[in-house]
C-alpha cells in the first residue's frame, strides 16, 4: 500500500515532521528523496521583498493527485507527499515540499524529479512578486516547460 499525502495550505510545514509522517507504520521504505522549494530574494536584477501565490482551489488538489498517481504508475513507490503553500510568502520561506519513498533510491530520485517538474506546469498556481518597483505577475519560464516536456518522451 502506498502512503499518499497531498495538501495545499497557507501555513508553513516542518520537513522533518512531514517525512516522519510519510514513513509512519512501514519499514519498506529504503529511500526517501525530498525536494524543498524556497522563495529566492532575487529575480533577474530585482530584489524581491515578498511574493503572493494564488491558486485554483479544487483544481489544484485534483492536478496534484493526478501528478502523484502518474508517478505511482511509473515507479514502484511506497509513498509520495506533496505540500504546496499559497498566500503571502517572503524570501527564505518554504513554498513546496515533494517527497517520494521507495524500496530503492533510483525510483525515489526519479519520481521526485518528475513530480516537481510536472507540478510546475500542471498545478494551477500563479506567483506575484513584489520588489522596490512594485508588484508584477511572474511569467512562465521556458525552462520549466522544457523540464516537464522531457518526461513526455518515455
Amino acid at each position: 500500500m502506498t502512503a499518499t499525502i497531498i495538501r495545499v495550505q497557507e501555513e508553513d510545514f516542518d520537513v522533518g515532521e512531514e517525512l516522519a509522517r510519510l514513513s509512519e507504520g512501514t519499514a519498506r521504505m529504503g529511500a526517501v528523496v525530498c525536494f524543498v522549494g524556497l522563495v529566492r530574494d532575487v529575480a533577474g536584477v530585482d530584489a524581491i521583498e515578498s511574493m503572493t501565490l494564488e491558486h485554483y482551489p479544487g483544481m489544484t488538489e485534483a492536478k496534484l493527485r493526478q501528478t502523484v498517481s502518474q508517478a505511482e504508475k511509473r515507479w514502484p513507490l511506497e509513498g509520495c507527499l506533496v505540500i504546496h503553500r499559497y498566500g503571502h510568502l517572503e524570501p527564505r520561506d518554504r513554498i513546496v515540499l515533494v517527497a517520494t519513498a521507495s524500496c530503492h533510491r533510483d525510483a525515489a530520485f526519479e519520481a521526485c524529479r518528475f513530480v516537481i517538474d510536472w507540478l510546475k506546469t500542471s498545478a494551477p498556481f500563479w506567483k506575484k512578486e513584489k520588489s522596490a518597483d512594485g508588484e508584477y505577475w511572474v511569467e512562465q519560464e521556458h525552462s520549466d516547460r522544457e523540464a516537464a516536456r522531457r518526461w513526455e518522451k518515455d
Binding site: 498545478a123 500563479w126 506567483k127 512562465q140
Partner: peptide, 10 residues
C-alpha cells in the same frame, strides 16, 4: 470555465 495566464507554481 476558468481563465488565467500560464501557470507559475512550484
Amino acid at each position: 470555465v476558468a481563465m488565467f495566464p500560464p501557470i507559475t507554481g512550484g
